[in-house]
Structures are given as structure tokens and as C-alpha cells.
Design a protein around this nucleic acid. Structure first.
Lengths: 148, 148
DNA sequence: TATTGTTATACTCTATAACTATA
DNA sequence: TATAGTTATAGAGTATAACAATA
């Protein structure tokens, strides 16, 4: 297309367009469950790692700690997570899924996996593997550059 | 990694992390030139397509028209683009690079190409090609899903 | 001193509806 | 009627500095 040609094969913009398209479609899939990409991701990580602390969740999602506060509060408010003081470190908040949270996570994971299968349907298995590997490599290289 | 494992191979989040990392590093590279990812992209497209109209630029960048207004205004304000009424359609604005804009675009393109070479240095040529192809496929599939 | 979580704040990008002036 | 550009507005996500409580 003209757009790609005029952007001279700009890889970063291709990543942007693909990500925004996937995110928009994913949010469309998650909306009936009352979730978005970020709230879904946080819910799944906590469900798979009960007792996780907020700072660990922030690390897992690559989100700054201040931005984690509202995200967790939203999930607690929705009755999907609980946030309790950790007994061994009273600064920390341990996060646990509620029964409702676990049930919703199960449904949401199924919906997202189906969604991702549709999104990557035209890719062969090794093509998909190359995509995931290349994304991880590019992310690592970018972070190394930034913090060099 | 734990984070990836707990996200169950969530492709959309891998795309998010890679894109945000690349964008942050790219903006770091562009900042000394007074540009960001979006202003850079607009400047390059207009430089490569002088006389382009604002709505065509919006299409090329996959940006909604209202969001194009401030972006173009910023580039005009910086003396990099001019915006003139199109003689054949007095509703439209034709965009042209200034001499300053062309010169800055040349410098910025070189900087971005060097940046992208660094970011993709660990990928083989066919791996990079697969990445670009897969991104385009995923974007197309997501847009089809959304507008289905 | 360092870390956990928090507040406050600002910026960028995105999305939609409604308007104007032209066509 | 439809299109190009605009205005206004709202929302999501991100980033930094500074603080209190705790380690």
C-alpha cells in the first residue's frame, strides 16, 4: 500500500497498527464481560498467582506502580480480587482472586484464546512462533537501548 | 518468564509490550529533533507525497480525522509543513513540506532507520520479513473481526 | 536508607458527535 | 446528500515526583 511505502517499511508503525487493531478487537470481545485488555491481564495473572503482591503484578504487566493502583482498585470494586495486608511485610498488599473472579477469569480466558486463534488463523504454527520470538527480541533490544 | 507464563502466551500483550518499548525508544531517538513517533510519521508521509490532503494523510496513518488536526497544526507551527487550500476542491487542504521540513525529514529518516536496524539486529532477514508479514496479517484479521 | 503503595499531575493518543463550508 | 476539515469532549494509558508507612 501507499501508506506503508511512504513510511519506508517503518517497522515501529507496523507494530503500532497491528497492536491497536488487536487491542480494539480484544476490547470488543471483553466488553460483554466487563473487562478490558489491562483489567483482563491483571485478573489472569493474579488468578494464576494468588497471593501476588501489587508491585510484582506491576512488574509482570510492565506497568508503573502508580498506574497499578486504579487498575487493582477497579478489580476489587468489581468483586473480582481481594487486597489484604501481607502478614510478613505490612507494607505490601497480597492479591487474591475471589470465586467470582476465578469464574470470570475462566470465561474470559476462553474468549481471549478463541479471539487470538481467529486473529492468527492465517499464520502457520512456525510463523506464529517466529512472531512471538521476534516481538520478545525487539522488546528486549528496545529496553536495552533505552536504559543504556 | 513468569509474566509471560501467567499470561498464557497472550499474543496481544506481547505485541503491546514490544510496541510500547519500541515507541519509547524511538521517541528518545526523535526527541533531539523535536519529533515524536506520530509527528515523524506524518512528516515523512507528506515529504514523500507532497500535495497530499489531510484526509489522505489520516488514512495513510490510520488516524481519525479529528486527531489529524492538531498533529498537522503542530508541524505547520514548527515550520515543517504548509497547509494550503486545494485549488480544485476548496474544502480540502493540500500539505507540502517546507525546505526545513525536507531537511529535518532526511535527518530523521536516517536516525530512525539506524534505530530500527539496532532494534532488529538480532533478527535474521527472513525472520524480520516474517514479523512484518505476520503483523500485517494480524492487523487485517483484527480489523475484519471488528467491522464484521 | 530502601521499598510498598499511594496521591497528584500532566501528557499522548484515541474515539465520537456535531458543526461549517464546500461539493 | 456527501465530503473535508474543524471543534469540543471524553476516555484510556502512560510517566514522574513526592509522600506515608514500613522494612
Amino acid at each position: 500500500m501507499g501508506a506503508d511505502a511512504t513510511l519506508r517499511g517503518f517497522c515501529g508503525y507496523a507494530m503500532k497498527r497491528a497492536f491497536l487493531g488487536v487491542q480494539a478487537d480484544l476490547n470488543r470481545v471483553l466488553a460483554p464481560l466487563g473487562l478490558r485488555m489491562m483489567t483482563y491481564s491483571a485478573l489472569v495473572v493474579v488468578t494464576d498467582n494468588p497471593g501476588l503482591r501489587q508491585s510484582q503484578l506491576a512488574d509482570a504487566l510492565a506497568v508503573e506502580k502508580p498506574n497499578m493502583v486504579a487498575l487493582v482498585a477497579e478489580l476489587v470494586q468489581a468483586g473480582l480480587l481481594t487486597r489484604q495486608r501481607a502478614p510478613d511485610d505490612r507494607r505490601a498488599h497480597a492479591l487474591h482472586p475471589t470465586d467470582t473472579g476465578r469464574a470470570l477469569a475462566a470465561r474470559a480466558i476462553a474468549a481471549v484464546q478463541a479471539h487470538e486463534a481467529r486473529i492468527t488463523a492465517t499464520l502457520g504454527p512456525e510463523e506464529l512462533q517466529t512472531l512471538m520470538h521476534a516481538l520478545a527480541q525487539v522488546e528486549r533490544a528496545a529496553l536495552e537501548e533505552t536504559h543504556a
